[in-house]
Structures are given as structure tokens and as C-alpha cells.
Design a protein around this nucleic acid. Structure first.
Lengths: 231, 231
DNA sequence: TGCACCTGTTTTGTCGACAATATGATGATC
DNA sequence: GATCATCATATTGTCGACAAAACAGGTGCA
């Protein structure tokens, strides 16, 4: 995955997040460093060390770490401290199991609740992605994929779904992608799957939309598992 | 719902939680008070006020409030403070949409991963519930329902699923049940549904287990909606 | 050698005080 | 009378210091 794609991804995912307090900024920075592996997976987070490194008080670090714990990016133990989560094949499988359930439901609800305008926008987005993919600019695929999934999830109009996925699981997904280095390909096939899902949503076919989304994520999981085993 | 059932519920849900730090205790207490309406839904949480009331420092209260925010029981705004979530028909519907997705997947995974012994235990549990329901001790139904769902979720062996549901959504579900006063009935029908789900799991029929669980939750949602509108 | 215990050090948990921001009331201006 | 600016108040954000708990190293004993 190119640096440009990473940047674009971040822009998409973080577009509505703005840091107000110092704790916000520290949280965002820490999250970025963990996801991108600057702080290694499985390593211990020392409050003192981080407070000197990021030039804020321990209270701010503690708040940031607590928020990281809510995204499941770190795990805290009382009187012991916090560790960055470890990446494992089992963890990846569990992550995709939850994605399948939640994003499947998101697609169903998107078919029910998205406005005609939102659907049209998403179709236009897909068209522009198609042009780029056709032109060989496949490095946009990662960002395009994220953009697509992001729109479906927000289209569900379900606050729980949105927050669990966007604030939580997606960062973990990205952490796996970046650190275990899976950029795809699966470009063209995934693109067709996106197209089919949007069509189902446009037809207001909830059942099909959910089924196609679940398959899409299942395929994606299988693809990643294959890479993990053979690569 | 009787006080006994409430107590039993809590025992089940909280059985593996033990308070280590002061923040733990305060968090549990605050969560209890919010779920049971001692602190009213939609009300503002003042850090100073709570710190005097619960006799701990503001830092402890802040940590507790942060954890409440991760369960979606309160919402924080920077430089403004935290409010207890408001209960609304829309919120209830969204909550059950997510439950349907997650617990459906949990049932599927339970059919895949639960050991024969765990399944046998669950069948025995259901038998004992059946005896009690038959004897007219229907006040155990609520606790029995919770116990059943809890076992399915943990049976999925999926840490994300477990934490999102057990640490998060279930408390919100309980908050709706307690404060909008829905104790059932639906006792006997729900019981049959439980039986069918366990049978599907015992047969290792993932597809059926998920479908039945989703219907079970959907029925439950419809039942509650009906109560909200007509009662 | 292996295990238990004690002790000094390090790290986390908790506290009270100060700084920065929002809130609400008061008054001025159109 | 309504709207906006200003200021006092109250609340949250941040900090540094102390208390309590875990950790590591060494010592004594079986």
C-alpha cells in the first residue's frame, strides 16, 4: 500500500474527527502510531515514558490510553498497565466474523434507509473508482474500498453500528492491513462485488444487500487468510 | 420484574467482574445507578457533584465516566460534560438491530465452536428453566433469558462479540427493560424459541441457529414496540 | 538447586490545586 | 423589545505530588 493511499484512507476515516482537547490530540496521535506500527503490536505502554515523549502530563496519557482501550487497540490491567493488542490469525478471523455480522446488517439497513440521493452519490463514487481502476491507478483501491464501506455503514443510520465500526473495528482492520502488509490485489473482483451491493441497495432489496455484503467480507477474509498461510 | 429477578440478573451478568481499584467500584456503582434509573436518563453528570456523592476524587469520577461512555450509557462532549443517554423508541430499535446482527452471528459461531459439554449444560439449564416456568415461577424468566443469551454469546468464543454485547449492549438493553418496564410476558413462546435454537446448535446447524436467533430477537423487538405504542 | 521471603525501585492509582473553557446574567445599543 | 457584547461564575481540562501496588534483585533456608 502506497503512502498516498494510507494518507487518503486516513483523510476519509478521520474526516469528521477534530481534536478539541489535548487528550484528543494525544489519543489521535497514539492511535495513529499504534495502527501504523510505530508503537509495536504487543508492546507495553509506559505512562511516564509516553508523557515525556508526547510532552503532556500523565493524566492526558491515561485518558488517551483509556480511549484506546475502548477501540480494542490496547488492553489494560489494573495496577499493571496497558499493552498494545497482539496481532494473530485468530484475532483476524474473529475481527472479520464481527465485520460480517455488522456490515451485513449495515447493508440491509442502508437498503432500507439511505435516501435516493445518497445512493446516487455512491453510484457516482463507484463510477469514478471504476475509471481509475481501469486506468491502472490501482493504488486508489484501498481508499476506494474504505470509502465504500464507510458510506454503507453511515447509510444504515444506526448510531451503534456506526460507532462500533468506524470508531472501533476499522482501526483494527487497518492495523492488520498495514502491519501484515495486505494491500490486495482483489481489485477488480472486489470492485464487481461493490457494484452488485450498490445495485441491491438501489433496488431496496435488503435481503440481497445483506447477503452480498456478507459474502464480500467473507471472500476478503479468505483472501487474507490465504496470504497469511502461503505468504 | 421482581427485585429477586433483578438481583439474579446482575449476578449472572457481573459474575466475572471484580472491582480492583476505586475507579472500578465507582464505575460499577454508577453503571448500576444509571441502568436502574437512580440517575435519570438524559440527566447531566456533574463531576464535582458525583465526587462528593460517591466520596472519591474527581479523577476517579472522570475515569468512571469515560468507561460509561464506552458502554454507550453516557455521552461526553469536550469542555461541556457528560449526559446519561436518553431512552427513545428509535434508540431501542437501533439497539435491537445491532443485537440481531451480533447475536445471530454468535449463535452461528456457537454452533461451530461450543463443546459438546457446553451444549449439554445449556440443555440442562433449559430443562431446569422449563420446570420452573411450568410450576408458575415465571419470575425467573427474565434471569433465565439473560442466562441463555449469555451462554450463546460466550459460546461463540469471539472476544469482540463477547465484549461488545456483555460489556456494552446488554446493560443498555437492561436499562430499557427496567426503566420502560417491560418484564415480558412472552414467557412460554420465548422459551420454545430458546429450545429450538439450542437444538440447532446441538445439530451443528449454523445456518438455522443464526436464523432462529435473529427471529427470536426480532420477535422480542416487535413485542416491545407493541408495548411502547399501545401501553 | 530451588523456593520463599524480604526490600528497594519502579509503575500505576489517587488526590488537590490551577488553567482554560463554557454558561448565564447583566447591561448597552439599535 | 430584541440582539449582541461583556463579565462573573461554574464546570471541565490539565498538572505535579503523594499513596499504594507490582516488579526485580538479593538473601536465607530447606
Amino acid at each position: 500500500m502506497s503512502t498516498l493511499a494510507i494518507l487518503r484512507f486516513y483523510t476519509v476515516l478521520v474526516k469528521n474527527e477534530q481534536a478539541i482537547t489535548n487528550a484528543d490530540r494525544t489519543f489521535f496521535q497514539l492511535r495513529k502510531d499504534i495502527v501504523e506500527g510505530v508503537i509495536p503490536a504487543g508492546s507495553k505502554l509506559s505512562e511516564m515514558e509516553l508523557s515525556t515523549k508526547y510532552e503532556v502530563s500523565r493524566a492526558v496519557i491515561r485518558e488517551a490510553i483509556n480511549r484506546l482501550a475502548t477501540c480494542h487497540l490496547v488492553e489494560r490491567k489494573a495496577n499493571v498497565g496497558a499493552r498494545v493488542v497482539a496481532l494473530s490469525p485468530e484475532g483476524l478471523i474473529q475481527l472479520y466474523q464481527v465485520r460480517e455480522a455488522l456490515e451485513g446488517m449495515a447493508a440491509r439497513l442502508a437498503a432500507r434507509y439511505m435516501s435516493d440521493e445518497e445512493i446516487a452519490d455512491m453510484q457516482a463514487l463507484l463510477d469514478s473508482h471504476f475509471d481509475k481502476v481501469k486506468d491502472g491507478q490501482s493504488y486508489y483501491q484501498e481508499a476506494g474500498d474504505v470509502d465504500f464501506h464507510y458510506r454503507i455503514v453511515t447509510g444504515s443510520k444506526n448510531d451503534h453500528l456506526i460507532s462500533v465500526l468506524v470508531d472501533g473495528l476499522y482501526h483494527l482492520v487497518r492495523m492488520y492491513r498495514v502491519q501484515l502488509g495486505m494491500a490486495g490485489p482483489r481489485v477488480s473482483t472486489a470492485f464487481d462485488e461493490h457494484r452488485h451491493i450498490v445495485n441491491a441497495i438501489a433496488n431496496r432489496d435488503e435481503e440481497l444487500a445483506e447477503m452480498l455484503m456478507r459474502r464480500h467480507i467473507l471472500y476478503s477474509k479468505n483472501n487474507i487468510e490465504k496470504k497469511l498461510n502461503h505468504g
